[in-house]
Design a protein around this nucleic acid. Structure first.
Length: 482
RNA sequence: GCCGAGGUAGCUCAGUUGGUUAGAGCACCAGAUUGUGGAUCUGGGGGUCGCCGGUUCGAUCCCGGCCCUCGGUACCA
């Protein structure tokens, strides 16, 4: 006998995972909700290959970014890699298809890959949902992206949330104000991005000489002088629930800087558009501590957090990146967009109990009680399907009815149809409400009594199959907890 | 990357002061029940005891190296 067969251990590489049907159903329903919002906004879908040329991917990224690109080989031995975000491929598409009408407003939901060390909630393959407007400088585009983030989070019923925004222009003014070079600025932004996590004290020490943390690790400092850090602190101290107030304080702080007024005007216009549309201070705040680590942002930057699940961090982030397409075209094409971490948001939704947890798509299982009645079963199955009721006919090997009902139970299919020679003779079918039986089963220890009761079982006329099933399903769906 | 803990069945873990045949619960399969699903009982399948080497008459156990996992920390375009 086949004891000697060489088997392969079923496994997947680290940082990757399977999404089983119940997870996929929850994810798809979330994505459908989001897609609905963006299509309402008039965004169009885009798909690009997982694999891109390495030079297409890596030009915009820093060197540590290049390390986390998954390399891919092909028979031609070209230098290829898996995309690590959806923004770079978008820039490539814009540069490659010159006749695409602009502004090009697209959404894309796709997996991306990063060869980082996996961690809790961090995978090497994960899905992003991006939306971007390419080819327009107007701050209405920025406004629209932020409003879209709000509407998405509202539609997902995540509870209270906050979209925080700032602008790279404000941070650049801060560099001028503090006498920091643009080169050092990149490090400064990276450190400021940690403000939420580690606090002002550690951030200011890291901006100066660095320190040793609890684990004995050395945090290298950026090397700023004390008065420079002082000026950064004055900037960060501008905190207010009211966006108008933040703008006023910004104007005061940067009163002596050239071009400051025009830059602040842009931020103010976005804020005012949002006020006008009803996106008030309770869910959109002008928060100057938002830096976003990403180097390619050039204007407004924004991110969203869930106030009822803050431990999940930023679930949605983005900004304006006017120079990204330039690498491909040599021509400046302004763009603004946001990217949502599908997995992170889904985890947060699960934490908040806001995901619908279904295991099956079928609402009805037709059991196979009598092989000679197969054609009747198929007839019923397609009758229900053609009426739009998701229906499954039991095609497994188990002959015992108990096994078939157990199958319905395992997949949480709410209704099972039983039709043997008895029912057929009477022109009826027996329908079991699986949840009703399940509720009774918990209380009963005596199997025979439970069997005799036949809980949740009703009879409907074969002629009225579709109507009868519709009625029962409507009952189940309106029940408080089915 | 750094610090710490760990790796025994599909999952969660027990165990062996080094000794013949390595266990439990859950899950899975079959039956009690050939037309009734989360209960109960009976039986069953499933293990390179992470990998390689060393010590030993003998190693899942002791020693060394490696790999991997988990917690903390750093990084994260």
């Amino acid at each position: 006998m086949p004891n000697e067969i060489q088997t392969v251990e079923p496994r997947i590489s680290r940082g990757l995972r399977d999404l089983l049907p119940d997870q996929m159903l929850a994810r798809q329903s979330m994505i459908d909700t989001i897609r609905h919002v963006y299509e309402l906004y008039g965004f169009v879908p885009l798909s690009t290959p997982a694999i891109e040329f390495l030079d297409v991917l890596s030009g915009s990224a820093g060197q540590e970014a290049q390390q986390s690109i998954f390399r891919v080989s092909n028979p031609e031995e070209e230098a290829l890699g898996l995309r690590f975000d959806l923004t770079v491929p978008l820039a490539r598409v814009i540069a490659q298809y010159r006749d695409l009408p602009r502004p090009f407003r697209r959404y894309q939901v796709s997996p991306v890959w990063r060869a980082d060390k996996p961690d809790k909630g961090r995978f090497r393959e994960f899905t992003q949902f991006d939306l971007d407007s390419v080819g327009t400088e107007t701050e209405v585009a920025d406004t629209e992206i932020m409003a879209g983030m709000c509407d998405t989070l509202s539609a997902l019923d995540v509870g209270r949330y906050l979209v925080r925004f700032s602008s790279r222009a404000m941070l650049n003014l801060l560099l001028d104000f503090s006498g920091i070079s643009a080169k050092q600025g990149v490090d400064v932004f990276r450190v400021l991005d940690k403000l939420d996590k580690v606090g002002l004290d550690k951030v200011s020490r890291e901006l100066m000489n660095g320190y040793k943390d609890e684990s004995g690790d050395t945090i290298r400092g950026v090397g700023l002088a004390a008065d420079q850090v002082d000026r950064i602190k004055r900037f960060l101290e501008i905190k207010n629930d009211n966006r108008r107030e933040v703008v006023t304080q910004l104007r005061a702080l940067f009163a002596n800087l050239d071009h400051a007024a025009a830059q602040i005007d842009t931020v103010e216009r976005i804020s005012n558009h949002l006020y006008a549309l009803g996106y008030d201070d309770d869910r959109v705040s002008l928060d100057l501590s938002i830096a976003r680590g990403l180097a390619y942002y050039t204007g407004p930057v924004f991110e969203a957090i869930l106030l009822d699940a803050p431990q999940f961090g930023s679930v949605f982030g983005g900004g304006r990146y006017d120079d990204l397409v330039m690498r491909f075209l040599g021509e400046k094409i302004p763009a603004v967009g946001a990217s949502m971490g599908v997995d992170r948001l889904l985890a947060a939704l699960a934490h908040l109990g806001r995901v619908d947890s279904r295991k099956a798509t079928a609402r009805v299982l037709i059991t196979n009680m009598d092989k000679s009645l197969t054609d009747d079963y198929l007839q019923m199955t397609w009758e229900l399907r053609r009426a739009g009721i998701p229906t499954e006919f039991y095609i497994g090997m188990a002959k015992r009815l108990g096994k078939q009902l157990e199958y319905a139970d395992q997949y949480e299919i709410p209704l099972a149809i039983l039709c043997g020679s008895n029912e057929k003779a009477k022109g009826e079918v027996t329908v079991k409400n699986m949840a009703a039986g399940r509720a009774k089963a918990g209380a009963l220890n005596d199997r025979s009594a439970w069997l005799a009761e036949r809980p949740g079982q009703t009879t409907i006329s074969r002629d009225k199959l579709v109507d009868g099933i519709r009625e029962l399903l409507a009952e189940i769906e309106s029940a408080p907890n089915a």
